[in-house]
Protein backbone atom coordinates (compact mmCIF):
# COMPACT_ATOMS: atom_id res chain seq x y z
CA UNK A 1 0.00 0.00 0.00
CA UNK A 2 1.34 3.38 -0.97
CA UNK A 3 1.02 6.01 1.67
CA UNK A 4 4.00 8.28 2.15
CA UNK A 5 5.74 11.01 0.18
CA UNK A 6 9.38 10.82 1.24
CA UNK A 7 11.40 11.11 -1.97
CA UNK A 8 10.57 12.70 -5.31
CA UNK A 9 12.24 9.63 -6.79
CA UNK A 10 9.45 7.38 -5.49
CA UNK A 11 6.89 9.07 -7.70
CA UNK A 12 6.16 7.41 -11.01
CA UNK A 13 5.44 9.60 -14.01
CA UNK A 14 1.72 8.87 -13.59
CA UNK A 15 1.82 9.74 -9.86
CA UNK A 16 3.58 13.03 -10.57
CA UNK A 17 1.21 13.98 -13.37
CA UNK A 18 -1.80 13.08 -11.19
CA UNK A 19 -0.52 15.47 -8.51
CA UNK A 20 0.07 18.26 -11.03
CA UNK A 21 -3.33 17.78 -12.70
CA UNK A 22 -5.11 17.67 -9.33
CA UNK A 23 -3.28 20.85 -8.32
CA UNK A 24 -4.40 22.48 -11.57
CA UNK A 25 -8.06 21.90 -10.64
CA UNK A 26 -7.47 22.98 -7.04
CA UNK A 27 -5.87 26.22 -8.23
CA UNK A 28 -9.33 27.27 -9.37
CA UNK A 29 -10.58 26.91 -5.80
CA UNK A 30 -7.92 29.37 -4.65
CA UNK A 31 -9.37 31.98 -6.99
CA UNK A 32 -12.87 31.99 -5.54
CA UNK A 33 -14.12 33.74 -2.42
CA UNK A 34 -14.80 30.57 -0.39
CA UNK A 35 -11.48 28.75 -0.58
CA UNK A 36 -12.41 25.87 1.68
CA UNK A 37 -13.34 22.34 0.66
CA UNK A 38 -14.93 19.83 3.08
CA UNK A 39 -12.89 16.88 1.82
CA UNK A 40 -10.62 16.13 4.81
CA UNK A 41 -13.13 16.98 7.52
CA UNK A 42 -12.31 15.05 10.67
CA UNK A 43 -8.76 14.17 9.61
CA UNK A 44 -5.77 15.40 11.57
CA UNK A 45 -2.55 16.68 10.01
CA UNK A 46 0.43 17.26 12.29
CA UNK A 47 3.16 19.66 11.22
CA UNK A 48 6.25 18.36 12.93
CA UNK A 49 9.00 20.94 12.41
CA UNK A 50 12.38 20.31 14.00
CA UNK A 51 14.02 22.97 11.86
CA UNK A 52 13.07 26.61 11.38
CA UNK A 53 10.82 27.21 8.44
CA UNK A 54 8.13 29.78 7.94
CA UNK A 55 7.06 29.40 4.38
CA UNK A 56 6.87 25.61 4.17
CA UNK A 57 5.05 25.25 7.49
CA UNK A 58 2.55 27.99 6.69
CA UNK A 59 2.07 26.54 3.24
CA UNK A 60 1.27 23.07 4.60
CA UNK A 61 -0.95 24.58 7.27
CA UNK A 62 -2.93 26.60 4.71
CA UNK A 63 -3.22 23.55 2.44
CA UNK A 64 -4.55 21.31 5.22
CA UNK A 65 -6.97 23.98 6.48
CA UNK A 66 -8.36 24.62 3.00
CA UNK A 67 -9.25 20.94 2.89
CA UNK A 68 -10.92 21.23 6.33
CA UNK A 69 -8.40 19.01 8.13
CA UNK A 70 -7.52 19.76 11.75
CA UNK A 71 -3.95 21.02 11.99
CA UNK A 72 -1.63 20.60 14.94
CA UNK A 73 1.61 22.54 14.75
CA UNK A 74 4.56 21.20 16.58
CA UNK A 75 7.92 22.94 16.54
CA UNK A 76 10.97 21.66 18.36
CA UNK A 77 11.58 24.96 20.12
CA UNK A 78 9.75 25.05 23.41
CA UNK A 79 8.69 21.42 23.12
CA UNK A 80 9.80 18.28 24.93
CA UNK A 81 12.43 17.85 22.22
CA UNK A 82 14.44 20.61 23.88
CA UNK A 83 14.18 18.51 27.03
CA UNK A 84 15.82 15.65 25.16
CA UNK A 85 12.86 13.62 23.88
CA UNK A 86 13.80 11.33 20.99
CA UNK A 87 12.18 11.37 17.56
CA UNK A 88 10.65 8.00 18.28
CA UNK A 89 8.99 9.13 21.52
CA UNK A 90 7.69 12.25 19.81
CA UNK A 91 6.32 10.07 17.03
CA UNK A 92 4.58 7.76 19.48
CA UNK A 93 3.01 10.76 21.21
CA UNK A 94 1.62 11.98 17.90
CA UNK A 95 0.46 8.48 17.13
CA UNK A 96 -1.49 8.43 20.37
CA UNK A 97 -3.15 11.71 19.38
CA UNK A 98 -4.35 10.07 16.17
CA UNK A 99 -2.50 11.84 13.38
CA UNK A 100 -3.68 10.85 9.91
CA UNK A 101 -0.68 12.55 8.35
CA UNK A 102 2.60 13.84 9.70
CA UNK A 103 4.42 16.54 7.78
CA UNK A 104 8.02 16.47 8.95
CA UNK A 105 10.94 18.87 8.59
CA UNK A 106 14.15 17.62 10.18
CA UNK A 107 17.83 18.53 10.06
CA UNK A 108 18.83 14.89 9.70
CA UNK A 109 18.61 13.27 6.27
CA UNK A 110 16.46 10.17 6.50
CA UNK A 111 14.37 11.25 9.52
CA UNK A 112 11.04 11.06 7.58
CA UNK A 113 11.92 7.57 6.36
CA UNK A 114 12.55 6.46 9.93
CA UNK A 115 9.38 8.13 11.15
CA UNK A 116 7.36 6.27 8.53
CA UNK A 117 8.17 3.01 10.29
CA UNK A 118 6.79 4.27 13.60
CA UNK A 119 3.51 5.96 12.75
CA UNK A 120 0.36 4.64 11.17
CA UNK A 121 -0.55 7.78 9.21
CA UNK A 122 0.99 9.08 6.00
CA UNK A 123 4.38 10.77 6.30
CA UNK A 124 5.14 13.75 4.07
CA UNK A 125 8.74 14.90 3.86
CA UNK A 126 8.90 18.68 4.15
CA UNK A 127 12.69 18.74 3.92
CA UNK A 128 15.20 16.44 5.59
CA UNK A 129 18.80 17.64 6.03
CA UNK A 130 20.54 17.88 2.68
CA UNK A 131 18.50 15.01 1.28
CA UNK A 132 15.09 15.85 -0.21
CA UNK A 133 12.17 18.25 -0.32
CA UNK A 134 9.69 16.57 -2.69
CA UNK A 135 6.79 19.03 -2.39
CA UNK A 136 9.13 21.88 -3.34
CA UNK A 137 10.09 19.98 -6.51
CA UNK A 138 6.41 19.36 -7.27
CA UNK A 139 5.53 23.03 -6.88
CA UNK A 140 8.52 24.00 -9.04
CA UNK A 141 7.40 21.59 -11.77
CA UNK A 142 3.84 22.90 -11.44
CA UNK A 143 5.05 26.52 -11.76
CA UNK A 144 7.13 25.65 -14.85
CA UNK A 145 4.23 23.86 -16.51
CA UNK A 146 1.86 26.74 -15.82
CA UNK A 147 4.27 29.31 -17.26
CA UNK A 148 5.72 27.38 -20.19
CA UNK A 149 2.91 24.92 -20.93
CA UNK A 150 5.04 21.76 -20.85
CA UNK A 151 7.77 19.89 -18.98
CA UNK A 152 8.82 17.31 -21.58
CA UNK A 153 12.09 18.43 -23.19
CA UNK A 154 12.34 21.59 -21.09
CA UNK A 155 15.93 22.69 -20.40
CA UNK A 156 16.35 23.52 -16.74
CA UNK A 157 19.52 24.94 -15.16
CA UNK A 158 19.79 24.58 -11.38
CA UNK A 159 22.47 26.96 -10.16
CA UNK A 160 24.33 27.32 -6.88
CA UNK A 161 24.83 25.38 -3.69
CA UNK A 162 23.80 21.93 -4.93
CA UNK A 163 25.85 20.27 -2.18
CA UNK A 164 23.58 21.43 0.64
CA UNK A 165 20.39 21.61 -1.40
CA UNK A 166 17.54 19.18 -0.87
CA UNK A 167 15.61 21.24 -3.41
CA UNK A 168 18.17 20.45 -6.12
CA UNK A 169 18.12 16.71 -5.47
CA UNK A 170 14.33 16.46 -5.44
CA UNK A 171 14.10 18.57 -8.59
CA UNK A 172 16.66 16.48 -10.48
CA UNK A 173 14.74 13.30 -9.64
CA UNK A 174 11.27 14.65 -10.38
CA UNK A 175 12.16 16.60 -13.52
CA UNK A 176 13.98 13.54 -14.82
CA UNK A 177 10.82 11.49 -14.33
CA UNK A 178 8.78 14.14 -16.12
CA UNK A 179 11.13 14.32 -19.12
CA UNK A 180 12.89 17.66 -18.57
CA UNK A 181 16.64 18.00 -19.13
CA UNK A 182 18.41 19.29 -16.04
CA UNK A 183 21.87 20.85 -15.88
CA UNK A 184 23.41 21.53 -12.49
CA UNK A 185 25.70 24.57 -12.42
CA UNK A 186 27.98 25.11 -9.43
CA UNK A 187 31.59 25.52 -8.39
CA UNK A 188 33.18 22.07 -7.97
CA UNK A 189 33.32 22.52 -4.20
CA UNK A 190 29.53 22.88 -4.00
CA UNK A 191 28.69 19.70 -5.90
CA UNK A 192 27.99 16.48 -3.98
CA UNK A 193 30.09 13.35 -4.26
CA UNK A 194 28.88 11.02 -7.02
CA UNK A 195 26.89 13.76 -8.74
CA UNK A 196 27.90 12.08 -12.03
CA UNK A 197 25.51 9.25 -11.16
CA UNK A 198 22.53 11.66 -11.00
CA UNK A 199 20.25 11.71 -14.04
CA UNK A 200 21.46 15.17 -15.22
CA UNK A 201 24.28 17.19 -16.78
CA UNK A 202 26.85 19.10 -14.73
CA UNK A 203 28.64 22.33 -15.64
CA UNK A 204 30.91 24.81 -13.87
CA UNK A 205 30.23 27.58 -16.37
CA UNK A 206 26.97 29.50 -15.90
CA UNK A 207 27.51 31.79 -18.91
CA UNK A 208 27.71 28.83 -21.29
CA UNK A 209 24.51 27.24 -19.93
CA UNK A 210 22.27 30.33 -19.74
CA UNK A 211 21.51 30.90 -23.45
CA UNK A 212 20.33 27.29 -23.82
CA UNK A 213 18.03 27.29 -20.77
CA UNK A 214 14.24 27.63 -20.60
CA UNK A 215 14.27 27.75 -16.80
CA UNK A 216 17.00 29.04 -14.48
CA UNK A 217 16.52 27.98 -10.89
CA UNK A 218 18.78 29.85 -8.48
CA UNK A 219 19.52 28.11 -5.18
CA UNK A 220 20.08 29.96 -1.96
CA UNK A 221 23.68 30.09 -0.78
CA UNK A 222 23.21 28.53 2.63
CA UNK A 223 25.35 30.97 4.60
CA UNK A 224 24.70 29.02 7.81
CA UNK A 225 26.50 26.03 6.30
CA UNK A 226 29.36 28.01 4.72
CA UNK A 227 31.92 27.31 7.43
CA UNK A 228 34.27 25.22 5.29
CA UNK A 229 35.37 27.90 2.78
CA UNK A 230 33.61 26.48 -0.28
CA UNK A 231 34.49 29.62 -2.23
CA UNK A 232 37.01 32.44 -1.67
CA UNK A 233 34.54 35.25 -1.01
CA UNK A 234 30.87 36.12 -1.35
CA UNK A 235 31.81 38.67 -3.98
CA UNK A 236 33.67 36.19 -6.10
CA UNK A 237 30.78 33.70 -5.89
CA UNK A 238 28.37 36.41 -6.94
CA UNK A 239 30.59 37.34 -9.91
CA UNK A 240 30.74 33.82 -11.27
CA UNK A 241 27.42 32.30 -10.21
CA UNK A 242 25.11 35.20 -9.40
CA UNK A 243 22.21 36.04 -11.71
CA UNK A 244 22.56 39.77 -12.38
CA UNK A 245 21.11 42.01 -15.06
CA UNK A 246 23.83 41.25 -17.62
CA UNK A 247 23.38 37.49 -17.31
CA UNK A 248 19.60 37.86 -17.27
CA UNK A 249 19.96 39.59 -20.66
CA UNK A 250 21.59 36.48 -22.09
CA UNK A 251 18.53 34.33 -21.48
CA UNK A 252 16.12 33.83 -24.35
CA UNK A 253 12.93 35.89 -24.25
CA UNK A 254 10.58 33.23 -22.86
CA UNK A 255 12.93 31.85 -20.23
CA UNK A 256 11.85 32.13 -16.59
CA UNK A 257 13.78 32.59 -13.35
CA UNK A 258 12.92 30.62 -10.20
CA UNK A 259 14.13 30.62 -6.61
CA UNK A 260 12.84 28.43 -3.77
CA UNK A 261 13.36 31.23 -1.23
CA UNK A 262 14.41 32.71 1.05
CA UNK A 263 16.66 34.79 -1.23
CA UNK A 264 19.96 36.48 -0.53
CA UNK A 265 19.34 39.48 -2.75
CA UNK A 266 22.59 40.72 -4.25
CA UNK A 267 24.29 37.38 -3.67
CA UNK A 268 22.91 34.62 -5.90
CA UNK A 269 20.26 36.83 -7.49
CA UNK A 270 20.07 40.60 -8.00
CA UNK A 271 16.99 42.45 -6.75
CA UNK A 272 16.22 43.58 -10.28
CA UNK A 273 16.06 40.02 -11.60
CA UNK A 274 14.11 38.76 -8.59
CA UNK A 275 11.41 41.39 -9.15
CA UNK A 276 11.19 41.06 -12.94
CA UNK A 277 7.95 39.77 -14.52
CA UNK A 278 9.83 36.70 -15.74
CA UNK A 279 10.63 35.68 -12.18
CA UNK A 280 8.13 33.19 -10.73
CA UNK A 281 9.23 33.60 -7.12
CA UNK A 282 5.93 34.83 -5.67
CA UNK A 283 3.91 32.48 -7.91
CA UNK A 284 5.93 29.60 -6.47
CA UNK A 285 4.65 30.48 -3.00
CA UNK A 286 1.01 30.53 -4.12
CA UNK A 287 1.47 27.34 -6.12
CA UNK A 288 3.01 25.72 -3.04
CA UNK A 289 -0.32 25.77 -1.22
CA UNK A 290 -2.15 24.31 -4.21
CA UNK A 291 0.36 21.52 -4.79
CA UNK A 292 0.40 20.59 -1.09
CA UNK A 293 -3.41 20.46 -1.13
CA UNK A 294 -3.16 18.03 -4.02
CA UNK A 295 -0.64 15.86 -2.15
CA UNK A 296 -2.72 15.80 1.06
CA UNK A 297 -5.89 15.06 -0.89
CA UNK A 298 -4.31 12.19 -2.81
CA UNK A 299 -2.79 10.71 0.36
CA UNK A 300 -5.75 11.19 2.72
CA UNK A 301 -8.80 11.80 0.53
CA UNK A 302 -9.78 8.19 0.02
CA UNK A 303 -9.80 4.79 1.65
CA UNK A 304 -6.16 4.52 0.66
CA UNK A 305 -3.61 6.88 -0.91
CA UNK A 306 -3.41 7.29 -4.67
CA UNK A 307 0.29 8.24 -4.69
CA UNK A 308 3.54 7.67 -2.77
CA UNK A 309 5.61 4.81 -1.45
CA UNK A 310 5.07 1.76 0.67
CA UNK A 311 6.13 1.79 4.28
CA UNK A 312 9.61 0.48 4.88
CA UNK A 313 8.51 -1.78 7.70
CA UNK A 314 6.17 -4.58 6.64
CA UNK A 315 4.77 -4.87 10.17
CA UNK A 316 3.39 -1.36 9.88
CA UNK A 317 2.14 -1.96 6.36
CA UNK A 318 -0.51 -4.37 7.52
CA UNK A 319 -2.14 -1.68 9.63
CA UNK A 320 -4.75 0.22 7.61
CA UNK A 321 -3.58 3.80 7.10
CA UNK A 322 -5.60 6.76 8.20
CA UNK A 323 -8.30 4.74 9.94
CA UNK A 324 -8.93 5.62 13.51
Amino acid sequence: MKRHLISAGDLSRDDALLILDTAEELARVSERSIKKLPTLRGRTVVNLFFEDSTRTRISFEAAAKRLSADVINFSAKGSSVSKGESLKDTALTLEAMGADAVVIRHAASGAPHRLATWVRGSVVNAGDGTHEHPTQALLDAFSMRRRLGRLEGLKVAIVGDVLHSRVARSNVLLLGTLGAEVTLVAPPTLLPVAVETWPCQVSYDLDAVLPKSDVVMMLRVQLERMNAAYFPSAREYSRRYGLDRARFGRLHDDAIVMHPGPMNRGMEISAEVADSPRSTITEQVANGVTVRMAVLYLLLGGSEPAIGTSAADPAVQTVPGGEL
Binding site: L18, T22, L26, Y297, L299, G302, S303, E304, P305, A306
Partner: peptide, 8 residues
Protein backbone atom coordinates in the same frame (compact mmCIF):
# COMPACT_ATOMS: atom_id res chain seq x y z
CA UNK B 1 -13.47 7.08 2.20
CA UNK B 2 -14.95 4.01 0.55
CA UNK B 3 -12.58 4.14 -2.41
CA UNK B 4 -9.01 5.30 -3.13
CA UNK B 5 -8.61 9.05 -3.73
CA UNK B 6 -9.96 9.84 -7.19
CA UNK B 7 -8.79 12.29 -9.81
CA UNK B 8 -10.72 15.56 -9.94
Amino acid sequence: RLRPARPL
